[in-house]
């Protein structure tokens, strides 16, 4: 079976700092992986490298059997990978449906002009992440942090990904909002979506993942079941502080 994502010997240096250090791992189709590590471990850099927002110093990234290391971000998204950000980045003066509309757009100027928006799909996506009909015309300024994360999920889903990278998906959320987002992720897992999830909220993360990868200083320090990884001595000393 083709892996959804294969990362091989990935290295990223920012001047003298090595943010990603010979990192290799695979994600199978339909698998959900938790990526954990202390602040500054290089988790977000891995996301940026997979999305092409930064270019790797060396190593390869393969998505569904095709090497994407040299592609630009928009090409990678069309190949089926998409991400959310630690701090949601909505289009501030657009409504919820208009934000989703941007995610649904084809990357062709002609098609953007010739074809109207798919309003049914926009509403379907908004409702699928938990928005009410009354929320559809709201602007980001009127939304809570939980709603902003839902909006980010909807816009990311609109690009049609097979693999989603979720960065600090529970940060700044209330307990109820965490439960809502977790339920949404579970539903998407049942529908076959592949996930790579970064979160410091290990309690919320655990039920959502099949496997855990821990990194520190850009290097992998553990890969296995959630229980095995948090019991790992290197993880405990560098991240959990309970060695």
């Amino acid at each position: 079976m083709t892996n959804a994502l294969e990362i091989k010997n990935l290295v990223k240096r920012f001047g003298g700092l090595t943010a990603t250090d010979d990192l290799s791992f695979d994600i199978e189709q339909g698998e959900s992986i938790g990526l954990i590590g202390p602040n500054g471990a290089g988790k977000t850099t891995v996301f940026s490298l997979v999305m092409g927002e930064h270019r790797q110093t060396s190593g390869t990234i393969t998505l569904y059997g095709e090497e994407i290391s040299k592609l630009g971000t928009s090409s990678r998204i069309r190949h089926g990978v998409s991400r959310t950000y630690q701090v949601p980045r909505p289009f501030a003066e657009m409504s919820v449906v208009e934000n989703i509309r941007v995610g649904l757009m084809p990357d062709s100027i002609w098609q953007m002009i010739a074809q109207g928006p798919n309003r049914e799909r926009e509403i379907e996506l908004a409702l699928s992440v938990g928005f009410d009909e009354a929320d559809l015309q709201r602007t980001p300024a009127e939304l809570s942090m939980g709603d902003l994360r839902k909006l980010e999920m909807a816009r990311t889903m609109a690009t049609g990904p097979k693999l989603m990278l979720l960065d600090e998906v529970f940060a700044g959320l209330t307990v109820a909002e965490i439960a809502q987002i977790a339920e949404l992720i579970q539903q998407m897992r049942k529908d076959g979506m592949t996930f790579l999830i970064v979160s410091h909220d290990l309690k919320a993360l655990e039920p959502l993942i099949d496997r855990t990868i821990a990194i520190n200083y850009g290097r992998m320090i553990a890969d296995g079941s959630f229980e095995d990884v948090i019991a790992n001595e290197a993880v405990r000393s560098s991240y959990l502080g309970t060695a």
């Binding site: 980045r89 909505p90 657009m94 990357d107």
Partner: peptide
Amino acid sequence: SAIGMNEESVRGSGLS
């Protein structure tokens, strides 16, 4: 308009 509001998010929406 989206470019004017957040260029990175436009790129992150799969648009060139």
